[in-house]
């Protein structure tokens, strides 16, 4: 699989940037000619990953969040969301549906939603060091549009 294009951007963990991040990814992914449905799935997954950085990675502080998007020649996109925050001690436990450390503002469904809206989800984390979430999604090739 060859990389066709890529972009990387970094921003502060302010909640106002959640909307910016998912919109920026959507605009870049538009090169793969996704349906509105596919675009919506990707935007939701990006929003989950970025919100986790804002809420959990940097609970009392502001920190950096990096997003990288890579487009491949099989018409798939790989999105990486990285933070240098508190990290996750037990990733398997964190990925379980309904698991949350966020109290009644959160429902513990973020990772489950990323999993169901994307084809693949990988979470790497080290407590005290940060977390990297990598997601992949194949965009259907529509006949007659390219």
């Amino acid at each position: 699989m060859k990389e066709r294009n890529s972009v990387k951007f970094e921003f502060l963990s302010r909640s106002a940037n959640e909307g910016f991040a998912r919109a920026a990814v959507a605009v870049f992914i538009a090169q793969l000619d996704p349906t509105l449905e596919e675009l919506g799935d990707v935007k939701t997954a990006v929003s989950e990953a970025v919100t986790n950085c804002v809420v959990h990675a940097y609970p009392e502080t502001l920190g950096k969040i990096a997003v990288r998007v890579r487009l491949f020649d099989d018409n798939s996109a790989e999105i990486t969301v990285r933070d240098w925050g508190v990290g996750i001690a037990d990733v398997e436990e964190a990925r379980a549906p309904m698991y949350t450390t966020g109290g009644d503002d959160r429902s513990g469904m973020g990772f489950t939603i990323m999993e169901s809206f994307m084809d693949k989800l990988r979470v790497k984390s080290t407590a005290g060091r940060g977390t990297t979430v990598t997601m992949r999604r194949r965009i259907s090739v529509r006949a007659g549009v390219r």
Partner: peptide
Amino acid sequence: TFMDSSGIAVVLK
């Protein structure tokens, strides 16, 4: 026009 998991808690509240 857009909702993610944050909407779940809004509805539950």
